[in-house]
Nucleic acid binder design. Structure first.
Lengths: 325, 325
DNA sequence: CTGAAAGCGCTTACAG
DNA sequence: CTGAAAGCGCTTACAG
């Protein structure tokens, strides 16, 4: 592997000068530039990002920590984050943790060790505050900021409102909201808040249920849904806080002989691919996942210098009507 | 951020000695070790992986290149790869490319720049051969090796055979295989081969169709499926080369008034989460995704020194019967 | 068992 | 416009 030293020898220029043309720093004569370019080609020179990072003491690596990759919301999110990151010339380092605080701390240490230039923290359990005042900026997506970091979330409350309204408009009288993990505080909790508001405004019966964290970790809610439907046989509308949960509601309903949407209407959240694979297709709340991802990346990159920036952006959601309501 | 220099000062030991205790090289007196440990704690010292990589001229970063993240097969695969990577003490750098050769080359360069210690190449279009003879070993998953790298694939041919057999056992007379991308050679092509074999052995009518690469890139096959079903109205069994395609077959069939499995039987491939979200649930060919991911990672790490290792492991598949056959 | 020194491949003021 | 030199934070033979 050719190094800058080889290019220097090949061209007869000093290492410093060669480095300057690579970085476009200061004035460089046309002749010099051409010499260097020729040598680069000839030697098939590739800069060593590690060495560069060390001397600049900052890398071009963005770290991202998320609770799942297989969950469609997160696989979409990650997909868009990767794309935005790469297009801006950065590389992505990915870590998955199910929200275990200790594990997450270990990952943050990994990020530190690898001198990431920024970190995107997606959902997950614990407060962002604790990792503030660090070497790199962090932006949170759908996560409880509690501190001074920059946060991006969708308008969860509005999403909950839209869901309740749609269910009520379609004639539901006994609603259930399956939104929120027992014992964890997160922006998604606002989904239930909005839902509740609209139910009260319309004097419609409702219950907001939260589920144990294990279900979220394993992505299997069927037993829980079955129990809910059994214990509350007159439920005629369900608001699920993800398309995954909603899909499973459809499955469980079918197994109990309930027709969707005739006997039971359901609304999901996220608007991922699977919303179109169920039968009937899922009515759901659309999250602007792509925009959230892109905003996270560009904010992070913009934050490089002012590490103490603070703020919270709330993105719009919308109702996508399909076949389950 | 404390450096090794600070630890050296704090303990009164030389930098070399401190480094030695971190790396457990040679003999170190108990007293020295304790002093260092105390200093580390006091200063909250964290090693700089970048600096270490530079001096060892090799990092602890594994690179992975894949064509999709949102596709359930790849999100599962990536998920397992991340887990295996992290458990072995490595970090994961993720790149997505839809198989464009130039883009992929650029990503391989990124890996080179970042001095990854190994690369996992998932599916995608172009030959692995071209990136051989490099600084790092590469292992391919579901990809045409064509060169000297190490490859892992599932028994695609057997998968095709199992699918055809199941469809025939259930009484199908006119089969269609939707497996393979037009103009790209990949291990998954063997799915059709096995399918064809069994159809011939049983003298059953069949057609093997390939689809244009754009469909794979966008993950939307509905128009194509619709055309197939319209042009071949007597089709009574479809073998789709992924659960995604199979899900869309179910949707399209419904839109045309075809009942699954009564009028049309369908089998998918992969056995990912979405196979359980369709109605009816998908009969599919199970790929050992987790095992493939883990084997890829451990092989890669084992290959570190013998970069020229060669081989191909073929993993078993099995038929998972659910509701679409 | 430990220290001194060279080296990994770059960047960046500082001179000139 | 270009060169020489220090420095980024570590590792690793080589002495002792």
């Amino acid at each position: 592997m050719a190094t800058i030293k080889d290019v220097s020898k090949e061209t007869g220029l000093s290492i410093g000068t060669v480095s300057r043309v690579f970085n476009n720093r200061g004035y460089i004569s046309k002749e010099t530039r051409e010499k260097v370019e020729a040598a680069v080609k000839k030697l098939n020179y590739q800069p060593n990002a590690i060495a560069r990072s060390l001397s600049k003491s900052s890398s071009n690596i963005i770290g991202v920590i998320l609770p799942h990759i297989s969950h469609p919301f997160f696989s979409d999110l990650l997909s868009y984050i990767e794309n935005a990151t790469r297009e801006k010339g950065y590389s992505l380092m990915v870590f998955v943790t199910k929200g275990d605080e200790e594990a997450e701390l270990a990952m943050i240490n990994r990020c530190r060790e690898n001198k990431v230039c920024g970190l995107i923290l997606c959902s997950g359990r614990f407060a962002t505050k604790k990792i503030e005042s660090n070497e790199f900026p962090v932006v949170a997506i759908e996560r409880n900021p509690e501190g001074a970091s920059f946060a991006i979330e969708c308008n969860n409350r509005q999403g909950g409102r839209l869901a309740a309204q749609e269910l009520i408009d379609k004639g539901c009288k006994n609603l259930v909201s399956l939104a929120g993990i027992k014992g964890r505080k997160m922006p998604a909790d606002d989904r239930s808040t909005g839902f509740e508001e609209v139910c009260r405004e319309n004097s419609v019966n409702f219950t907001c249920l939260t589920y144990p964290p294990e279900l979220y970790d394993r992505l299997d809610y069927t037993a829980f849904i079955d129990k809910v439907l059994t214990e509350r046989p007159n439920t005629d509308g369900i608001f699920a806080s993800s398309d995954i949960i909603a899909s499973q509601v459809i499955q469980v309903a079918a197994s109990k002989g309930l027709k969707v949407p005739e006997d039971l209407k359901v609304i999901g959240f996220d608007d991922t691919l699977i919303a179109t694979y169920t039968t009937p297709q899922l009515t759901t709340i659309h999250q602007p996942i792509k925009e959230m991802a892109e905003l996270a990346v560009s904010t992070l990159i913009g934050l490089k210098d002012e590490k103490s920036a603070t703020g919270c952006t709330i993105m719009n959601v919308s109702l996508v009507k399909r076949g389950t309501t």
